[in-house]
Design a protein around this nucleic acid. Structure first.
Lengths: 157, 157
DNA sequence: ATGAATCGTTTGTGTTGCACCAATGATTAG
DNA sequence: CTAATCATTGGTGCAACACAAACGATTCAT
């Protein structure tokens, strides 16, 4: 205990539970996503990209807190499926600007459709209201960190 | 699309965000937990065990949704550190009943202390109120699934 | 214009956290 | 007594990373 910042100590830590719950969902998600040619990591990337289109690849790397080289291969997979598009930035032609394609948007929507069953199972103890509450807290947390813009309600189908 | 259960389709999916956020916390947690000889997976196990003491190893396996053999090695690590104790069940001597030791309780508390800094950073966009709200939603979700008993507020330090 | 830095990329290595399989000892159940 | 069950060990394999090295393309500084 040298020079602890001794931050504000809230009553509870959410980390472990968050991790635990994420794992539950992730495991099941793998199963339902597989037929769609997606894996959980893709879902995360697509979700981020839907929220923040036209993001630079580097920024994506920062947002995902993932090594640049791994982002490359992740995007390679998505691009191979035609779900994203890499364009050279006009300002700096070294950069790649990444964006969802129409196919990407649709695939993501399809994925979320089938994922409803998963969340329905794992979040069974939460009613719709609580789930929305949870969702908004997550958005807020992730966004506040400089990551996702409020996607706000999509008109959806 | 043969026979879709077509479950209730809530507005938003939380899975990806949950995964994303969990990863953020997990990554940072590794760093601050390492000096304590813990890793995120240990934290999860300890957290579950604090909530549900005297649980059978098999039940733990179910709760963690983790293969039995992996739970063994996980517990081996914790036991080697003296954080948990395996006792034979009196009813069925094949079973092991797992419980936190005093050292385990303390180590977990210490871990949560240092983790406050991590969550403070990652959840910066949430005030204390929101964090509690998040925590309770997580507990509810995890618990409702037949996992964690309401730990309800510990007096804590 | 030349050299240094940056962005994305490929390749390769290593680690961790799992799943899964097989085999074993201890114990319980039929 | 045999069969099933629980925990355990050991092994294989995979996915998701981190990290390092080297490269082409581009930009930036001088």
């Amino acid at each position: 205990m040298t020079s602890l910042p001794v931050v504000n100590q809230p009553v509870h830590r959410s980390g472990a539970l968050l991790d635990h719950l994420a794992r539950r969902i992730r495991t099941r998600s793998e199963a339902v996503l597989a037929p769609l040619g997606l894996r959980p990591r893709h879902l995360i990337a697509l979700t981020v990209l839907r929220a923040r289109g036209g993001i630079t690849q580097q920024a994506l790397s920062t947002t995902l807190e993932m090594d640049g080289t791994n982002v490359v291969s992740l995007l390679n997979e998505l691009e191979a499926e035609g779900l994203i598009e890499r364009r050279r930035s006009p300002e700096d032609r070294r950069r790649h600007v990444v964006e969802l394609t129409q196919a990407g948007v649709e695939r993501l929507a399809k994925a979320e459709f089938v994922l409803a069953a998963v969340e329905d199972e794992v979040l069974a103890a939460l009613d719709d209201n609580h789930r929305e509450q949870l969702y908004h807290l997550l958005v807020q947390a992730v966004e506040g960190h400089g990551t996702i813009c409020p996607p706000d309600d999509e008109p959806a189908t």
